[in-house]
């Protein structure tokens, strides 16, 4: 593999990792802070992708579609938290898994009813629909770079919100001792609802902006969900920093695995997970 090929794979791995991070950060926060195992998290990724494809068809602009799908995903996430998930905080994990698995079925059926089972593709916006020429035969699509850029900016923004703002302090304090947060007069229910909504919006955003590079298809949320659980476990449940490192690790392992050991490609991420857990059984940051 020459240096340009390696560079391309590297960029692909980073981009995939950043995209996974958008989904996994919400999953880890919801699990770590609210104690909820949200199997339906991947469904928001799918929802975002379908909304983006559908709205892009209506508005004629992927950018507008992405911007519109954000509040929709957040709103649906908030409604699900208030109407269903809220009742589960004091229940055990089995009840949560049952409910959120049921939600996956509902989401998948809704997708079939509203949008059918065809596979769709979305073109990148014209402004970003070109490639940077690396050599005579190799080039790199600008859309992927832009996507990495957006994810990177969001990761930094998330870091700043969580580590510097009072909202971030409440979220972290909620992960440590939620009863004490309530005893300080902070509305934990609202806080959790917002975290759930933001998590749903981020997953939806990831699905929406990934439409030009991967197809919009039934079941697309399930693969992402499984990888994101791997990321969360590697990073340490509840740690956004851990989710970031875990996502980069899995993004790169998956991408390079497909290049170097194509026959075992589906195994590489689990190999990485096993190695990390042997070294740190509770994940990188716990």
């Amino acid at each position: 593999m020459d240096i340009w090929m390696a560079l391309i794979q590297m960029l692909n791995g980073i981009q995939y990792g950043l995209l996974l991070f958008l989904v996994a950060s919400g999953l880890t926060l919801i699990f770590g802070i609210m104690g909820i195992i949200n199997l339906a998290h991947g469904a928001f990724y799918m929802l975002g992708a379908y909304l983006a494809w559908w709205l892009a068809g209506i508005t004629g602009s992927l950018g507008a579609a992405v911007l519109l799908s954000l509040p929709l995903a957040a709103g649906i996430g908030y409604a699900i938290e208030v109407l269903l998930v809220r009742a589960l905080y004091k229940r055990d994990h089995l009840d949560q898994v049952l409910l959120t698995y049921g939600l996956i079925l509902i989401f998948n059926e809704a997708q079939r009813v509203f949008w059918g089972n065809d596979v769709h593709g979305v073109a990148a916006p014209a402004m970003l629909d070109w490639s940077i020429k690396l050599t005579d035969t190799l080039s790199y699509p600008v859309y992927r770079l832009a996507l990495s850029g957006v994810c990177g900016v969001l990761a930094v923004a998330m870091y700043l919100v969580i580590s510097k703002t009072r909202f971030g302090m409440w979220v972290r304090a909620g992960a440590s001792n939620r009863d004490m947060v309530a005893a300080l007069g902070i509305d934990v229910k609202l806080l959790f609802g917002l975290v759930f909504a933001v998590g749903a919006a981020l997953a939806g955003l990831a699905g929406a902006i990934s439409t030009p590079i991967s197809s919009v298809a039934p079941g697309m949320g399930d693969n992402v969900l499984i990888l994101c659980f791997v990321v969360v476990v590697i990073g340490g449940v509840g740690s956004v920093k851990g989710a970031f490192l875990g996502a980069m690790l899995i993004g790169l392992a998956d991408t390079f695995g497909k290049v170097f050991v194509p026959d075992f490609a589906s195994f590489t991420v689990y190999g990485v997970m096993a190695a990390v857990l042997l070294w740190k059984p509770k994940g990188l940051f716990s």
């Binding site: 309530a182 005893a183 300080l184 007069g185 229910k189």
Partner: peptide, 8 residues
Amino acid sequence: HETSSIIR
């Protein structure tokens, strides 16, 4: 009432 609203 909720603890947080009593406290407030």
